Deep mutational scan, measured.
Amino acid sequence: MEVRTIKVFTTVDNINLHTQVVDMSMTYGQQFGPTYLDGADVTKIKPHNSHEGKTFYVLPNDDTLRVEAFEYYHTTDPSFLGRYMSALNHTKKWKYPQVNGLTSIKWADNNCYLATALLTLQQIELKFNPPALQDAYYRARAGEAANFCALILAYCNKTVGELGDVRETMSYLFQHANLDSCKRVLNVVCKTCGQQQTTLKGVEAVMYMGTLSYEQFKKGVQIPCTCGKQATKYLVQQESPFVMMSAPPAQYELKHGTFTCASEYTGNYQCGHYKHITSKETLYCIDGALLTKSSEYKGPITDVFYKENSYTTTIK
């Protein structure tokens, strides 16, 4: 009895394709271990004539594949690729409408935090270190965002349907971005203890939790000093293409032309909904596939993004 075979390709990165001759009487799992086709788990399936010449994702289970996976995804987590594939199996079914010149995501599976993050990423200057993220990001900007969303979920250790947080998501993504040249110098002034300067680099240099107003941050924000008295913390120097200011959701007025974009969060910790506000020729609110415009805006804002380049204080 002759062994019926077909020729397929296996890959971990969709760049390096490895030619395989597979036995049609055995499952993919018996031949390769966990195997995925377009995100779908085909591990328990036997090869079919229609699979001839198709590319299958496999887990990096030998040295060659491990090197290829690390170079593309910059992670050695053995569960990463499987999590990416199972997320992709959902995100490829989502709709990605162009809204006001940006790629958004039609609401499904509690994905409003991903839509808000995706919209924000198209408006701030950011370059990702893992080629996987950078490639998928370019495709997302062009309207094909399924891979990018699935990668975000995998890097953030999230599953489809789980509630997510924009600030946490951005923080994970910033860790995989090139923020080497970003720098922030802060000064804390206390009447009792004097003053202390701190220099922050990388992710810490672009994120701040405690106030939404970048102007206020430049002037000074009140913080408790270690001595128990009130101290003032203010920005001395900022070198970065953008800054992200966050605070627990509270009524906040966004003035046209003073910011790049913002995240609105309605609801409580267990259950809520994100919308995205962007400042173009007027203010726009993007909620999944829905767009509304207004000249002014007041609502429960939790993150505001500002364009920056270089700032030095005039406070002496």
Rank of each mutant, 00 (worst) to 15 (best):
V3D: 14
V3N: 13
T10Q: 09
T11F: 07
D13P: 00
N14V: 09
I15V: 10
H18Q: 11
T19Q: 04
Q20V: 12
V21G: 11
M24T: 13
S25F: 15
T27F: 12
Y28E: 10
Y28F: 14
Q31N: 12
Y36R: 03
L37Q: 11
L37D: 14
D38V: 11
V42K: 09
K44L: 12
K46L: 14
H48W: 14
S50K: 13
G53W: 13
K54T: 13
T55I: 14
F56T: 09
Y57W: 11
V58Y: 06
D62H: 09
D63R: 02
L65A: 12
L65M: 11
V67C: 15
A69M: 15
F70N: 14
E71D: 14
E71T: 09
D77S: 09
P78R: 00
L81D: 07
G82E: 15
R83G: 07
Y84V: 04
M85E: 04
N89W: 14
T91H: 02
K92W: 07
K93R: 14
K93S: 11
W94I: 08
K95Y: 11
K95W: 11
Q98V: 11
N100R: 11
L102E: 05
T103D: 04
S104G: 12
I105H: 03
K106Y: 12
K106D: 14
N111C: 06
C112Q: 09
A115Q: 02
A115Y: 07
A115V: 07
A115G: 06
T116N: 09
L118Y: 01
L118A: 07
L118D: 01
T120C: 13
Q122G: 06
I124R: 08
K127D: 14
L133P: 05
L133E: 03
Q134E: 09
R141K: 15
E144N: 12
A146W: 08
A146F: 01
N147M: 10
N147A: 11
A150C: 02
L151K: 06
L151P: 05
A154G: 05
T159A: 15
V160S: 02
E162L: 00
D165C: 10
V166S: 00
R167C: 00
F174A: 00
F174I: 00
N178A: 13
N178Q: 12
D180L: 03
S181V: 05
R184L: 02
R184A: 09
N187P: 03
V189I: 13
V189F: 10
C193N: 08
C193R: 00
G194D: 00
Q196A: 10
Q196V: 10
Q197S: 13
T198G: 04
T199N: 03
L200Q: 14
G202C: 06
G202S: 02
V203D: 01
G210I: 09
Y214V: 05
K218R: 05
G220R: 03
G220P: 08
V221Y: 03
I223E: 13
L235A: 03
Q237N: 09
F242V: 00
F242A: 05
V243F: 04
S246H: 05
S246N: 01
S246Q: 04
P248Y: 08
E253D: 03
E253F: 05
H256W: 09
G257I: 02
T260E: 08
C261Q: 08
S263E: 01
Y265K: 06
Y265L: 00
T266Q: 03
Q270H: 12
C271W: 11
G272P: 09
H273T: 00
Y274N: 00
H276R: 00
T278P: 03
S279D: 14
Y284C: 14
C285N: 06
C285Y: 00
I286H: 01
D287W: 05
A289V: 07
K293Y: 07
K293W: 07
K293I: 12
P300C: 12
I301S: 00
I301F: 00
I301Q: 01
F305R: 00
Y306T: 01
E308C: 06
E308K: 03
Y311H: 09
T312Y: 12
T313M: 13
